[in-house]
């Protein structure tokens, strides 16, 4: 049993200290992943809260078939997409306006503005693959597990995202 699995098994016994440690360890990853899908800090915080409550209630159901990180991100994904559908119905989701997001203004000094704009314009299912690979360092298999899609689809989404962004970098 890995250290992460042991921590989760402690959470399954309703150990609040262990749960706080787990929260501290995964809060940023869950929040950033939710943000990559929803693009709203407020909604991403809601998803973080819902995800961690689901972890608290469902830790006993973890079977160890995947990494703890993959399991938690999978829950976050389901929560984020449920929010996405809910918000789309009520049309409360922020428009895909880059200015609507909380972005460090100095970031554009270091990166190509056009690429950032292109990243904003990517469909969310392409953006979340990039996020899982570049930011969470997931393998093809792990990303496929989180997204509940075949490994080939992970590769093709990554390929399309790369082509779209490459146009901006090379034009």
């Amino acid at each position: 049993m890995t250290g992460e699995e042991k921590l989760l098994s402690m959470v399954a016994t309703q150990d609040r200290s262990a749960f706080h440690v787990l929260y501290e360890r995964y809060a940023n990853a869950v929040y950033r992943y939710a943000l990559s899908i929803l693009r709203s800090p407020h909604l991403a915080e809601d998803v973080l809260q819902e995800t961690m409550m689901a972890v608290w209630k469902g830790a006993g159901g973890f079977k160890g078939r995947s990494k703890v990180q993959t399991w938690i991100l999978g829950i976050a994904r389901n929560q984020a997409h449920a929010t996405l559908r809910r918000e789309a119905k009520g049309q409360r989701l922020p428009a895909s306006d880059p200015a609507a997001e909380t972005v460090d203004p100095t970031a554009s000094l270091h990166t190509d503005l056009r690429v950032q704009e292109a990243l904003h314009a990517l469909p969310s299912h392409h953006r979340e693959v990039m996020h899982l690979v570049f930011f969470e360092h997931l393998t093809v298999k792990e990303a496929a597990s989180v997204l509940e899609i075949p490994e080939g689809t992970v590769k093709s989404r990554m390929h399309h995202a790369r082509l779209t962004l490459a146009k901006e970098l090379t034009s």
């Binding site: 940023n28 929040y31 950033r32 943000l35 990559s36 800090p41 909380t102 972005v103 460090d104 970031a107 270091h110 990166t111 190509d112 690429v115 950032q116 990243l119 990039m130 996020h131 570049f134 930011f135 962004l165």
Partner: peptide, 10 residues
Amino acid sequence: AYMSLAQAGT
């Protein structure tokens, strides 16, 4: 570029 964007204020 992605890392720079994703790390900003998150």
